[in-house]
Amino acid sequence: MSEEFEPKIIAFCCNWCSYAGADLAGVSRLQYPPNIRIIRVMCSGMVHPNLVIEALTKGIDGVIMCGCHPGDCHYIEGNLKAESRAEAIELMLEDFGLEEERFRLEWISASEGPQFAQVMKEMVDTIKELGPSPY
């Protein structure tokens, strides 16, 4: 067995765009690393900073939050909420002594399967470079 570090990454995907995007990546048979655990949420705006910090301090190495493109939100402005929450999350990462690269906010629409796979690949590469979470 190889000893290479395999990060655990949680992706919060919104039900209306990003989760469908992930689905599209799946049915199109696009390859992306298996380090991603997807959690479907109704809207990226409902992902409380608590959830992200808790994940990162309890064994997860990276968190990615995916929502609809601005203006496309099913709930009109949920993703804008997510954006302001992302700012707060970045502040908290700093307070908790975590690298800001461990968290990422991405807009992925339902038709962007290839982009979903691409973003996940990039995220896994970044985290592999950073190494495991200090917690």
Binding site: P49, N50, I53, A88, M92
Partner: peptide, 12 residues
């Protein structure tokens, strides 16, 4: 409890 996060929420 996570006072750091809760405090930021309370402030905002």
């Amino acid at each position: 409890a996570n006072p750091l996060i809760d405090m930021m929420t309370a402030l905002s």
